[in-house]
């Protein structure tokens, strides 16, 4: 249990670090493109596509870390009106639904990656399937983090 929590915390930290590195790389590649075009009249054609791959990585890893830290915007005013038992089940169902969503993201993006694996990204020459890899990783992470939240719910209930 503690091991599972600490692994999750570490995974979330790594996801956030990966997102930060991608964000920094994103800034560098775009500014490099501007400088090359403006100063050297030699715009690197791949900038747009590299940037798009980086931004999807920032977004998906950031979103996964957001689930770990419960950073996504939601509405709790209705649930708060319920008695403790009702609140517990609502929170449980929320985690369950989050897992369902992440599982469909994983499955659907795997499907899209398979469907597009022979298509190439223009100016890069690599497969379109790469676009769906960051969301697939994020799907796995979100499932893990939600399981963690779920276990925490039960622990809290047992303690109470």
């Amino acid at each position: 249990m503690d091991l599972f929590n600490s692994i999750n915390a570490r995974l979330s930290e790594w996801a956030l670090r990966a997102a930060s590195v991608c964000l920094a790389a994103l800034g560098i590649v775009v500014i490099y493109g501007v400088v090359m075009r403006y100063a050297f009249n030699d715009a690197p054609p791949y900038v747009e596509q590299v940037a798009l791959l980086l931004v999807i990585s920032v977004a998906m890893f950031g979103a996964a870390a957001g689930v770990h830290d419960a950073g996504h915007i939601g509405l709790d005013s209705v649930v708060k009106l319920l008695p403790a038992k009702g609140q517990f089940w609502c929170l449980f169902v929320v985690e369950l639904l989050t897992i369902a969503f992440a599982a469909i993201v994983l499955w659907g993006c795997e499907h899209m990656a398979t469907s597009t694996r022979h298509d190439t990204i223009p100016t890069l020459g690599i497969s379109e399937a790469w676009r769906y890899v960051p969301p697939m990783i994020a799907g796995v992470l979100i499932i893990l983090f939600s399981v963690k939240h779920m276990l925490a719910l039960f622990t809290k209930k047992a303690a109470a």
Partner: peptide, 27 residues
């Protein structure tokens, strides 16, 4: 030496480069 906006495609980039201009892919 002209900076030419092209569609983000390999063919368009190669075409403009072959003309001696510099391709600038942009939306």
């Amino acid at each position: 030496g002209l900076k030419i906006r092209v569609q983000p495609s390999d063919l368009a980039v190669a075409m403009v480069t072959a003309m001696g201009a510099s391709p600038a892919p942009m939306p």
